[in-house]
Design a protein around this nucleic acid. Structure first.
Length: 206
DNA sequence: CGCACGATTTGCT
DNA sequence: GCAAATCGTGCGA
C-alpha cells in the first residue's frame, strides 16, 4: 500500500544482532476486523539458526515449524510455548539463513482499548505489551499467522525517526548453553518502562 | 507412536 | 518469591 518509502525488505536481510539496535523504537501495527493495535518496540532478543546458537529453535535445522526462519526476511515467525502463550519474531538475515528477533517488550501506541480487551489481566497500560507473550497477545497475533509478510497488510512496520538508545544483556529466557555471557543478544532501550520484567539469567552480573 | 520439555505468565503465600 | 498450568514440537524407538 501506501507505506511512504516503506522499509525495503533488504533492510532486514542482515544479521539479527546487527538489525536489533536499528529496530528498537520501531512501530509494528496489526489490523484485524476488530481494529488496529500498534506497538513501539522497546526490547528485542536475537536468535540465529546456525549451530552456533544453542538457544535458537532453528538450532537443529529446518523443521516444519522453523522453516519460516529460513525463509525471506521481514516475515513473521510465531511459535507456541508452555501450552498457553504465543510469541512473535521478526525473521531476518537473507533468504536461506535462519535468524530472528523475538519481540520481548514494547509500548502500545495505538488501539489501547482493543489491547485491553485482548489482555484483560493487564493491570496497567504499561503491562499491555511488556513481555513476549503479552506483546503478541496485545497485537492479536495467532499461531496461524506465522509466515505472514510484515511489510504487507494486515501488518505495517515503521522505523524509528531517529535511532534509539541501546543497551545489551544476556538473553532472558534462555538457559544452559544458550544463556550467559557468550550470547549478549538481548537489546533494549535503557530506562524504558515497558522493558519486560522477567527475571534475568541467574548467572549474570547485575 | 509415545515421551520429555520449553525464547512464559499469573496468582497465591 | 515461588510453583503451577498446558500443548505443540521434535526426537528416539
Amino acid at each position: 500500500m501506501q507505506a511512504p518509502a516503506g522499509v525495503p525488505r533488504e533492510f532486514f536481510a542482515r544479521d539479527a544482532t546487527e538489525l536489533a539496535p536499528l529496530l528498537l523504537g520501531a512501530v509494528i501495527r496489526h489490523t484485524t476486523n476488530q481494529g488496529t493495535v500498534a506497538v513501539r518496540l522497546s526490547e528485542l532478543e536475537a536468535y540465529r539458526g546456525n549451530g552456533e546458537d544453542p538457544g535458537s529453535h532453528a538450532h537443529r535445522g529446518v523443521t516444519p515449524r522453523t522453516r519460516v526462519m529460513f525463509g525471506p526476511p521481514a516475515h513473521l515467525y510465531a511459535y507456541f510455548s508452555y501450552g498457553m502463550h504465543v510469541c512473535a519474531n521478526i525473521v531476518c538475515a537473507p533468504d536461506g539463513q535462519a535468524a530472528g528477533l523475538l519481540l520481548r517488550g514494547g509500548e502500545v501506541v495505538q488501539g489501547v482499548e482493543l489491547a485491553r480487551v485482548r489482555r484483560p489481566t493487564a493491570s496497567t497500560d504499561r503491562d499491555l505489551a511488556r513481555g513476549p507473550a503479552r506483546l503478541a497477545a496485545a497485537l492479536g497475533i495467532r499461531l496461524a499467522q506465522s509466515g505472514a509478510d510484515l511489510l504487507a497488510p494486515p501488518f505495517t512496520l515503521e522505523l524509528p525517526a531517529q535511532p534509539a538508545a541501546v543497551a545489551t544483556t544476556a538473553r532472558t529466557g534462555v538457559g544452559g548453553e544458550g544463556g550467559g555471557v557468550a550470547f549478549p543478544w538481548r537489546f533494549y532501550i535503557p530506562g524504558d518502562p515497558t522493558v519486560s520484567p522477567y527475571k534475568r539469567h541467574p548467572k549474570l552480573a547485575p
